[in-house]
């Protein structure tokens, strides 16, 4: 088998896996399974990125998502009052509208992808993609990189502030409302 045929085969398998597992995220009854189907989707997309010779991005995607999906699974189990996460659950609203919106989004974007005339300039296959990315991040686009870093730092601080139990006006689970923000008492009709 030639190399391009193998790449094509891998692409079809991986992309089918990505889309099918993405669909299964919302079809499964088990929360942990839902989180890990999403991880499968991410790993498949990471594989496609590796096929596109963006190895670094593909691997980093897997690296990030492995941790995040496990945290998602733990959160689901913690908040859903369903200790092992094995009971059935189907919790959807506005189902028909959501299916419609999803289909419209897919049709619109796929239409753009199929109809639009993108320039046909393939990346040179022997280019050191990772090294180029690194030079770009610490060279021309350093401002973008630094902004991303500062944004992440601000996110960390903000997330801790939001999630912290201790608030300015007492513990969060005891209300933590400033005095003037209390829900106004219903006024008697004149």
């Amino acid at each position: 088998m030639s190399r391009s045929l193998l790449v094509d085969l891998a692409f079809y398998i991986l992309s089918a896996g990505a889309v099918v597992s993405a669909w299964l995220v919302f079809r499964t009854d088990s929360m942990v399974r839902a989180a890990y189907w999403l991880l499968v989707s991410f790993v498949a997309v990471g594989g496609v990125l590796v096929l596109l010779s963006a190895e670094f991005l593909g691997l980093v995607l897997v690296l990030m998502m492995a941790g995040e999906m496990t945290i998602m699974a733990v959160f689901m189990v913690m908040f859903m009052m369903n200790p092992a996460g094995l009971n059935p659950m189907t919790m959807v609203h506005q189902h028909r509208a959501a299916v419609g919106a999803g289909l419209v989004a897919f049709a619109g974007l796929a239409g753009v992808g199929l109809v639009a005339d993108f320039p046909d300039r393939a990346a040179p296959s022997d280019a050191p993609a990772t090294a180029e990315l690194g030079t770009e991040l610490l060279g021309d686009s350093m401002l973008v990189f630094e902004t991303a870093g500062v944004t992440l730092l601000a996110t960390m601080i903000g997330a801790i502030a939001i999630a912290s139990r201790r608030g300015r006006y007492g513990d969060a689970d005891a209300g933590s409302l400033p005095p003037e923000l209390e829900a106004p008492a219903p006024k008697a009709r004149a």
Binding site: A22, L103, A105, L109
Partner: peptide, 11 residues
């Protein structure tokens, strides 16, 4: 590739 990306976005 773009169709696959669109499918993921749609889901």
């Amino acid at each position: 590739l773009l169709v696959v990306a669109a499918a993921l976005f749609g889901v």
